[in-house]
C-alpha cells in the first residue's frame, strides 16, 4: 500500500470513530464532531456532506447569540474567515495513526475510567444533585420552575 493510500485508509477509520462520538447536547455554531468529520473526510478523499443540512437555523443562531457574545477580540468578519479557512494537514502514515489512537482513547473513555474520582466528586457533599440537575436541564428532562430557580438564586443550590 502506498503511503497516501494508507493515510486515506486511516482517515476513513478515524471517521468511523468520529461518527460514534456523542452529539453535542447544546448547539454551537461549529461542533467538534462536525468540524473533525469534515476535516478527515477531506483527508480520506471523500465528498464532503451537504453543508446546508448541517447549517444552523435562524432559531439556533438567535439562541446562540443570546447565550454568548463572540469570542474575545474576534470580529464578525474574522469569525467568517475562521469558518471558511481550510487548514492544511500534512499527515503522514505515522502521524495519522497517532491521531487515530488518541481519538479512540478519548472515545473509549480511557481516562474517565482510569482516574475514577468516585461519588465524592460526582455527588459532591455540598450539593449532591449539582451535576444531575445540569444534565436534566440539558436533556430537557426536568425544567426549572420559577420557584426552583428562585430557590437557587436565594440559597445558591
Amino acid at each position: 500500500m502506498s503511503s497516501s493510500a494508507a493515510v486515506r485508509d486511516s482517515a476513513k477509520q478515524i471517521l468511523k470513530i468520529i461518527e460514534k462520538l456523542p452529539d453535542e447536547r447544546i448547539k454551537h455554531l461549529v461542533s467538534f464532531k462536525d468540524s473533525q468529520a469534515e476535516r478527515f473526510r477531506r483527508v480520506a478523499g471523500l465528498q464532503s456532506t451537504d453543508k446546508n443540512e448541517k447549517k444552523a437555523s435562524l432559531e439556533d443562531i438567535k439562541d446562540i447569540i443570546t447565550r454568548t457574545s463572540g469570542p474575545l477580540g474576534l470580529q464578525k468578519d474574522l469569525l467568517k474567515k475562521v469558518q471558511s479557512a481550510l487548514p492544511q494537514d500534512e499527515l503522514t502514515e505515522q502521524s495519522i495513526q497517532e491521531q487515530m489512537r488518541a481519538l479512540s482513547n478519548i472515545s473509549n473513555n480511557k481516562f474517565k475510567n482510569y482516574y475514577d474520582v468516585g461519588e465524592k466528586l460526582y455527588k459532591p457533599a455540598g450539593n449532591p444533585i449539582y451535576y444531575q440537575r445540569i444534565m436534566d436541564e440539558i436533556q430537557g428532562k426536568q425544567k426549572e420552575t420559577f420557584l426552583s430557580a428562585l430557590r437557587t438564586v436565594v440559597f445558591g443550590k
Binding site: F32, R39, K110, I134
Partner: peptide, 27 residues
C-alpha cells in the same frame, strides 16, 4: 458537562475553550 459525562464531551469542551475551536487540532 464533560467531567460528568464522558471523555469525548470533555475533549470537545477543551477543544472549544482551551484550543479556541481550531480545525486542525492535534488529537
Amino acid at each position: 458537562e464533560g467531567f460528568y459525562t464522558d471523555d469525548a464531551t470533555l475533549a470537545a469542551a477543551l477543544w472549544r475553550n482551551l484550543f479556541g475551536g481550531r480545525k486542525n487540532i492535534d488529537m
